[in-house]
């Protein structure tokens, strides 16, 4: 079963249009959504959550069309966790207990303990990291099968980010679980994602298995003349300076005599976005 199926969704705003965009996330996998500011990541996520209304296309989560009831099976962490600021954790838990059909108080309590969150402080006094952790604890405490995380690592220190990535890895050990995560911190996504989707100016540039991308593309440092001699289709992005040339290349289309080093997802994105 696919956890996410997006078919040809499109959304037009003044000065920006998203799509038509199609992508699929199989269950048991983590999909990283990468894109520059304003690329359409949040618009895509909001469409998945029914927060905006796409002009066309269809969205199915966990094999079902969007509905309020389906949100019992999805856990969401938005870039800003919008919980009532004057409430404390026990009061917030009560709200969630009344809201989610499968709310697990014991699981929630474990996460609160694990994340070291203070139960007697009001939410507004929490740091950005603590707010994010609480949002994550809520998302993980109601038996969600699909996690949708919009910039969850933004503003978090490296230790907390590492902790979050471990949790996501643990979550997807269950083959019925899946995660969609968007982030600017591409190195984080590289660590955990099975699939990578690049959004650029509202268009999906690619959506591929991460390993296949890393296998297919390489990074070539050479002279501008050597680069010109290559088949144009081999070059997916380049940068030529007075000191030499760097290019993102398709390994299959480049002669083996060239020394191609492995590429990172971040380089892949930056070069492709520049070319796009």
């Amino acid at each position: 079963m696919n956890a996410i199926e997006i078919s040809n969704i499109a959304k037009k705003y003044k000065g920006f249009s998203l799509g038509p965009l199609s992508l699929t996330l199989p269950a048991g996998c983590i999909l990283g959504l990468i894109g520059e500011n304003g690329a359409g990541k949040t618009t895509t996520i909001k469409a998945l959550l029914g927060m905006n209304h796409p002009d066309s296309g269809e969205i199915r989560l966990l094999g079902q069309p969007l509905s309020a009831d389906l949100r019992n099976e999805t856990g969401v962490v938005l870039d800003e966790v919008g919980l009532p600021e004057n409430l404390r954790i026990p009061q917030i838990e009560k709200i969630m207990k009344y809201s989610f059909r499968n709310w697990k108080s014991d699981v929630f309590a474990e996460y609160i303990k694990k994340f070291n969150l203070p139960e007697n402080k009001r939410f507004r006094t929490f740091s950005k990291g603590m707010k994010m952790k609480l949002g994550l604890a809520i998302a993980l405490s109601h038996d969600a099968k699909l996690l949708i995380l919009d910039e969850p690592t933004a503003g978090l220190d490296p230790l907390v980010r590492e902790e979050l990535l471990d949790i996501l890895n643990e979550f997807t050990r269950d083959e019925g679980h899946a995660v969609l995560i968007s982030s600017h911190i591409v190195s984080d996504l590289e660590k955990v994602c099975d699939y990578i989707a690049f959004l650029h100016k509202g268009q999906l540039m690619l959506c591929e298995e991460k390993d296949r991308l890393l296998e297919q593309y390489g990074f070539l440092q050479t002279t501008a003349e050597n680069l010109d001699a290559l088949e144009p289709a081999a070059i997916r992005g380049k940068r030529v300076t007075q000191y030499g040339a760097e290019a993102l290349v398709d390994r299959k289309l480049v002669p083996q005599t060239f020394d191609i080093r492995p590429v990172t997802i971040e380089e892949l994105f930056v070069y492709m976005a520049k070319e796009g």
Binding site: S67, L70, R71, G82, S99
Partner: peptide, 15 residues
């Protein structure tokens, strides 16, 4: 509106 609960509540199972 200030706490962003307005949009957060749409992530919960309520229509």
């Amino acid at each position: 509106a200030v706490s962003r609960w307005e949009s957060y509540q749409l992530t919960m199972p309520v229509s």
